[in-house]
């Protein structure tokens, strides 16, 4: 909603912060434009992502697949398109976290190289889980998020840690409306039997103590 408001003017201080912020915004726009220009040429090389490089995309998929794994009950975060969700969000509303992801994924890739001598493709589930477990346990100061620029991070209003950031975004990608690129074929909603976007629930539907069957629906279907 704040985007409906013009940049503030007023005291010199305001103007300075505004100019700084405008410059930041321009840079982001420029970067996004650049992505868009070579998007077609590089799509295959990048694994279809706009923001993540191919290597980053692979690593993100591996992580997402461990946070919400595919199992006998059904598909997991990878199949649900959670990484596509994050990729799109980072190219738009979550642009402020671009650098956090870059730094984090670089850090993780480096660790994998050092410890296992290869890329994420060479790791088994146990090794991946260990890596994620360590990330979750990292002390504040060691967290790749510490000290990164970004207004919300500066204010201490961002995610608690990079693990928290990634887990939250993966779960958003699992449970969001499919219009955001995640929850593909309602994979996330099917897992928990949530029918999604509906205008109406009847008394009969509300007063059963059994799972409810109602068609899975996106806001785009309304």
């Amino acid at each position: 909603m704040t985007s409906m408001e013009a940049a503030p003017t007023g005291s010199d201080l305001d103007r300075r912060t505004f100019l700084k912020r405008a410059a930041g915004t321009m840079a982001v726009i420029a970067v996004n434009m650049a992505f868009r220009f070579d998007a077609v040429a590089q799509e295959a090389a990048r694994g279809g992502y706009q923001f993540f490089t191919r290597e980053e995309g692979e690593l993100m998929e591996a992580i997402a697949g461990r946070i919400w794994p595919a199992d006998d009950d059904g598909p997991g975060a990878i199949e649900a398109g959670a990484v596509t969700y994050i990729d799109r969000a980072l190219s738009g509303p979550y642009a402020a976290y671009q650098q956090a992801y870059r730094v984090l994924l670089h850090d993780l890739a480096g660790q994998i190289r050092r410890r296992y001598g290869g890329s994420v493709r060479d790791l088994d589930e146990r090794q991946l889980d260990a890596l994620l477990g360590e990330l979750e346990e990292r002390a504040d100061g060691d967290d790749p998020l510490a000290g990164l620029p970004g207004r919300r991070l500066e204010l201490g209003l961002g995610p608690d840690s990079s693990f928290d950031m990634v887990r939250t975004h993966v779960m958003e990608g699992v449970f969001c409306d499919p219009i955001y690129g995640g929850n593909r074929d309602f994979a996330g909603w099917r897992a928990v039997n949530y029918p999604g976007a509906h205008y109406v629930y009847t008394a009969e539907e509300q007063q059963v103590f059994e799972p409810l069957t109602k068609p899975y629906q996106s806001v785009a279907d309304l």
Binding site: R151, L157, C176, D177, H198, V219, L222
Partner: peptide
């Protein structure tokens, strides 16, 4: 129908202001 979307309004807090 845009209201029928938890991510947009609740998670991304569609109506609340920035800290600044």
């Amino acid at each position: 129908p845009s209201q029928i979307d938890t991510l947009r309004w609740v998670i991304r807090d569609g109506m609340i202001p920035d800290f600044d």
